[in-house]
Amino acid sequence: VLIEESHLARVIDPASGSWYVERLTDELAHAGWEFFRSVERDGGQAAVLRSGRLADDLAATWRTRGAKLAARREPITGVSEFPNLAEPPVHRAPAPAPRSGGLPRVRRDEAFEALRARSDAHLAATGSRPRIFLATIGPAAAHTARAAFAANLFQAGGIEAVTTGTFEESGAAEACLCSSDALYAEQAEQTAAALRSAGATHVFLAGRGEYAGVDSRIFAGADAVGVLSTTLDRMGVS
């Protein structure tokens, strides 16, 4: 659309003059230059590699970024956001083994890859993925946003979100309440109790409210990787 209707390809520099892009470019250039100056101050590239300073800097940056990735504050489309559990796997020759030594290699989606690998192995062994039932309360306008949020989060860990039928029909062992804060105040506790009576072993709530019968809460900014890993553990997904 941008190429055909906005003629993006006919402009030499479509971002030229954009305050947003120019500001980011300026910040990146200054940060990069300061990094190179710090390397020079510490004796140059060979020296910072031998001393371990560069590896320590990279590890500190990766810890910060890893926390953002785990909390989905740095989303990865198709992995931590909008995953498609039904997509066919990609088959390709494995990459050559890296040379020994040197700086560590990391992938920004590796934590979610590990979770999906557990789900894939469970699917291969049992014929189905681990499931969670999304118990929506009230009309669609009240529960759609949080149900979509919950589905995205659980599917990022390879946990199939069931949104139709009853809890007993879902084949799930756990459930997640999805609705508005107003309806939670009225119905969360009784709905959680009903799910317990139906056999739910763990009840989540999409939101920050605390109610009797609710074991865990999921919300934007929470450690999604930690929640998903613990959930797979409880479900017996090795």
Score class of each variant (00 low, 15 high):
residue 13 D to V: 00
residue 19 W to Q: 06
residue 24 L to M: 10
residue 10 R to P: 00
residue 24 L to D: 11
residue 32 G to H: 08
residue 20 Y to F: 14
residue 18 S to W: 08
residue 23 R to G: 04
residue 15 A to S: 05
residue 9 A to Y: 09
residue 11 V to Y: 01
residue 24 L to T: 09
residue 5 E to Y: 13
residue 8 L to Q: 07
residue 15 A to N: 07
residue 30 H to G: 06
residue 14 P to M: 03
residue 13 D to P: 00
residue 31 A to F: 06
residue 17 G to Y: 04
residue 8 L to N: 03
residue 12 I to A: 08
residue 25 T to N: 10
residue 17 G to M: 04
residue 10 R to F: 01
residue 14 P to D: 02
residue 34 E to V: 14
residue 17 G to A: 06
residue 18 S to G: 04
residue 34 E to I: 14
residue 19 W to D: 12
residue 12 I to K: 02
residue 34 E to R: 15
residue 14 P to T: 02
residue 7 H to P: 00
residue 11 V to A: 02
residue 26 D to P: 00
residue 6 S to T: 01
residue 15 A to W: 04
residue 6 S to K: 07
residue 8 L to P: 00
residue 29 A to S: 12
residue 21 V to R: 08
residue 7 H to M: 05
residue 22 E to I: 01
residue 11 V to Q: 03
residue 26 D to H: 10
residue 11 V to K: 02
residue 23 R to S: 12
residue 20 Y to L: 12
residue 10 R to Y: 02
residue 9 A to E: 15
residue 9 A to I: 09
residue 11 V to N: 01
residue 27 E to K: 09
residue 10 R to H: 05
residue 26 D to T: 07
residue 27 E to D: 11
residue 15 A to H: 03
residue 12 I to T: 07
residue 31 A to Q: 11
residue 15 A to F: 07
residue 8 L to V: 12
residue 21 V to I: 13
residue 30 H to V: 14
residue 31 A to P: 06
residue 18 S to Y: 08
residue 15 A to Y: 07
residue 22 E to N: 05
residue 31 A to M: 04
residue 34 E to A: 15
residue 12 I to R: 03
residue 22 E to R: 05
residue 22 E to D: 14
residue 24 L to A: 09
residue 24 L to E: 14
residue 16 S to E: 07
residue 31 A to S: 12
residue 11 V to H: 01
residue 32 G to D: 11
residue 27 E to I: 06
residue 31 A to R: 10
residue 33 W to S: 15
residue 29 A to K: 12
residue 19 W to G: 03
residue 31 A to D: 06
residue 9 A to G: 11
residue 13 D to R: 00
residue 8 L to F: 12
residue 33 W to F: 14
residue 25 T to H: 08
residue 12 I to F: 03
residue 21 V to Y: 14
residue 32 G to E: 14
residue 28 L to C: 04
residue 14 P to I: 02
residue 19 W to M: 07
residue 8 L to K: 02
residue 18 S to A: 10
residue 10 R to M: 05
residue 21 V to G: 03
residue 5 E to H: 15
residue 25 T to R: 13
